[in-house]
């Protein structure tokens, strides 16, 4: 499979309310790659995702989606990306099918019922609950519908903001399997998370954000996963930045 760079942040600098949130970070993702941005609250993880969607302008550097500068054409960037926001809140007065149909139509897509069922099967949402309004759903069930939506968008790139938030442990494991499956089909996945263990389970590479700076990057060995303990030590600040393995 040919690998092409799908997402790239190049010396990206972003301000929010006159405060520098990203201080010149650089990284890139190729097709079939899962990249996890790991960091504490306020590290700049979500800001990075919003920059790729063109919601936040780059004060310095640039962000590219499929090789195109997002600032030049944010609509093209958004069309190429399926975005799962943190604690995605769908419409509570609609059921799962209606939510999926509505958001897909908004994105210019329409899927038949079997496709919707299949996506909901993939996220293991109980069939009995699918015709119920989302106001009766748990947080985890809502998150599953949002993940199904991201799958159904069928874009080359997925941006996932805390995707396992609200999921129970078994659902998290299923989600990790799903992410790996999607990557194996050529999808490029950038996810941001607090979850060190989860990130190590699923990511090919992990970027550690701290104070708006990318202070380290970890790559999985060819035949295994990134070692959790190493990342955890770095994340909790028990390892100096220069010692981070690459």
């Amino acid at each position: 499979m040919t690998t092409t760079v799908k997402l790239e942040a190049d010396a990206l600098q972003v301000y929010r309310s006159d405060k520098e949130v990203l201080s010149g970070i650089s990284f890139s993702l190729s097709s079939s790659e899962v990249y996890a941005l790991l960091g504490g609250n306020g590290a700049g993880k979500s800001t990075t995702l919003l920059s790729f969607l063109g919601f936040l302008p780059a004060a310095g550097g640039r962000v590219l989606v499929n090789g195109k500068d997002v600032s030049a054409d944010h609509k093209a960037a958004r069309a190429a990306i399926a975005y799962l926001p943190e604690a995605a809140s769908l419409y509570e007065h609609l059921n799962a099918f209606e939510n999926l149909r509505y958001f897909l139509q908004l994105a210019g897509r329409s899927e038949d019922s079997p496709a919707l069922e299949a996506a909901l099967d993939r996220v293991s949402l109980a069939p009995a609950s699918r015709a119920r309004r989302l106001k009766d759903y748990s947080k985890g069930m809502r998150q599953k519908v949002a993940i199904a939506l991201a799958i159904l968008r069928d874009t080359d790139i997925l941006l996932l903001d805390e995707p396992t938030s609200g999921l129970d442990p078994s659902a998290i494991d299923e989600f990790h399997d799903l992410i790996r499956d999607l990557a194996d089909t050529g999808k490029t996945i950038l996810m941001v998370t607090h979850d060190v263990y989860g990130a190590c389970q699923v990511a090919d590479r992990i970027g550690l954000l701290r104070g708006g700076k990318l202070v380290g990057e970890f790559s999985a060995p060819t035949d295994g996963r990134i070692e959790t303990e190493t990342v955890h030590r770095a994340f909790s600040g028990r390892t100096v930045d220069t010692q981070l393995a690459v």
């Binding site: 969607l53 919601f55 975005y83 926001p85 995605a88 769908l90």
Partner: peptide
């Protein structure tokens, strides 16, 4: 919490 999802979609 739907604004970004709506606009991105």
């Amino acid at each position: 919490g739907r604004f970004n999802l709506l606009v991105a979609s």
